[in-house]
């Protein structure tokens, strides 16, 4: 059996008394797209940060094509190799770009770090084209761009090193709905074109339905449900998944019933 693209086994992380991530296990196949859903505080962002290496796990491991990346990287070569394994697009495009650095400079920095000695200009044009930004945007500073444009820059930056896995941490949450749709389409196109695997961290079930093949539902650091996205959303097994789905505002939506369901769920957890 071939190695899965991304394999996460038994990941644990505690902050003080809080078990932010508790025995999380999942795999992402080549070119796959996996959604991690959950409300704020469910541990999905901590999971993402451990996967990309911004945080460390107390236990468990993260492997990309069988190579472990749980320990601290030793030396520059290993650091760069890891950066080429997994890249990340952050939630807030207003904060994830250095306000002083132009679009072109952001991409050039990364390309010069990973491909020293080659002229970055053609690749920069290619990347801007790939994310639907004209070369005119190249000289712009982040503050001169809209949220959607900034997120395109962030995606271009992440794609610059041709990563195997792209982690998208609430990557469309800060954008308004029409721009969300554009970015989601763009991400789908990029996956078709490059075969990159997506790990999609989101609280938005609509987003999950659009762009993921599989989904895991996290609650209080644990995975409560997992499976094909279509199956989970059509027939949720766990009460929490149903609650998340019911929480999406729509006609006939009853916030009081959701509050009651949430309390009932909380009471169920209280150890006897």
């Amino acid at each position: 059996m071939p190695e899965p693209l991304l394999e996460v086994r038994g990941l644990c992380r505690t902050f003080g008394d809080v078990r932010a991530v508790d025995d999380v296990t999942f795999t992402l196949p080549d070119g796959g797209s996996l959604g991690i859903v959950g409300e704020s505080g469910s541990g999905k962002t901590t999971t993402a940060r451990i996967v990309v290496g911004l945080d460390r796990a107390d236990a468990g491991h993260v492997r990309v094509r069988g190579q472990d990346r749980t320990t601290q990287p030793r030396g520059r070569a290993e650091r760069l190799a890891r950066a080429r394994q997994i890249q990340m697009v952050f939630q807030d495009p207003y904060l994830s770009l250095d306000p002083r650095t132009s679009v072109e400079a952001v991409l050039r920095e990364t390309l010069e770090l990973h491909r020293p000695g080659t002229d970055p200009a053609p690749r920069i044009r290619e990347l801007l084209d790939q994310v639907g930004l004209g070369t005119r945007a190249a000289d712009a500073l982040p503050r001169e761009l809209s949220g959607g444009q900034r997120q395109r820059v962030a995606i271009a930056r992440a794609l610059a090193v041709e990563p195997a896995v792209l982690v998208l941490d609430e990557a469309v949450a800060a954008l308004d709905v029409s721009v969300q749709a554009q970015i989601l389409n763009l991400l789908a196109d990029i996956r078709d074109a490059t075969g990159v695997g997506y790990l999609f961290i989101t609280h938005d079930l609509g987003v999950v339905r659009c762009v993921t093949d599989d989904v895991i539902v996290m609650r209080r650091g644990r995975i409560v449900e997992s499976g094909r996205t279509a199956d989970v959303l059509a027939l949720p097994n766990h009460a929490y998944t149903r609650l998340l789905m019911d929480s999406v505002p729509r006609p006939g939506w009853d916030p009081h019933a959701i509050g009651a369901a949430r309390r009932a769920l909380r009471n169920d957890d209280t150890p006897a």
Binding site: L54, L80, I86, S96, D98, L113
Partner: peptide
């Protein structure tokens, strides 16, 4: 976050 972004970039 931009600092984290640069770290992730290697």
């Amino acid at each position: 976050p931009y600092v984290a972004a640069y770290r992730v970039q290697g």
